[in-house]
Amino acid sequence: MLVALLVANDDYWAGRPYVDQIVIRAFPDEAAILAALEAGEIDMTLYAPFTSVPRLQSSENIRVEVGAPLVDLFIGANVAKEPFDNLLLRQAVNYALDRETLIEAGLNGFAEMPASLLGPLDLGFDESGREVSVYDPERAKALLADSGVDLPLAIEVAYENNRFWPQLAELVAADLEAVGFDVTLDRLDAGSFWGKVGDGATQLSLNQRSTFVPDPHDKAILMARAGAEGSQTQHQALDAVDEIDTLVTAGISTVDPMEREAIYQEFQALMLEHLPYIYIGYLTPPIFVNARVQNVETFGTAGGRINLREIWLSE
């Protein structure tokens, strides 16, 4: 299905694009995207199944490039309502996740181990956050016991019914059930999922956030400021919301990179302390390109922002 037709602007201030037009097409599922890619009907996609990469890497007609870690994958905990208004439970979820398996089996290895809300390409990225995002099921069980809730604790995990999410959800559910949660998986189409998350009707949601540019403010404003549009955890309910807001404002109001770095490191520590987001990994998505397409800039493409102006075809 044709979604959009982009035509080259001859008068563009930075010069005319190399290609005359670009057709944006929609497909009902990943298998259809893959079939179209292999048949040469489409030239580029981010949404073919990750499982196809080993086979496509040996293809003469298709090139697979690996994108930069611009996309955070995480579990958003709704901190405005029970049971995840309880920090101990959020910490239990954090330590229950076997991220190595999630990345290997759920994402076919296309992710890096997470540290915090900010990614490795963001200013002020604090690697020490990796000490929090670790697999420690015994600690998770102890935290659950300390929380005083009756076990197994029935919870619901919402996710989108597309791409790698269903597979990831099953693995997350298994990890959580192993420490004492009783998980119901809530598989939703994309529209219903985002509606439910936005309405604050989820308990835990498998979620993602990418950035236009690798500046920490991009994620901080959307994911941490109280009342920010696109809130995925209702974080306005956190005790530290004023403190977080102050840091977000200071981060964007400060010019000096060193000062900003310090601000965002403090910000990351605060987010890890309160854990409205429980990190799964930094996605490094495979970018599937027809061999004739040249000069694909993988950096922005990894975040879903493709610089089409620089692309040209070898034919």
């Binding site: 599922d29 990943e30 298998a31 893959l34 079939a35 292999e38 199944p49 499982t51 196809s52 080993p54 086979r55 269903p166 597979q167 959800a169 099953e170 559910a173 119901t184 998986l185 598989r187």
Partner: peptide, 20 residues
Amino acid sequence: EPGTPDWGMMVADGQRLIFD
């Protein structure tokens, strides 16, 4: 529920693996 062994669900989960 997702993950439950079920013929329809298994076909759905395997649909995107049809080529690989």
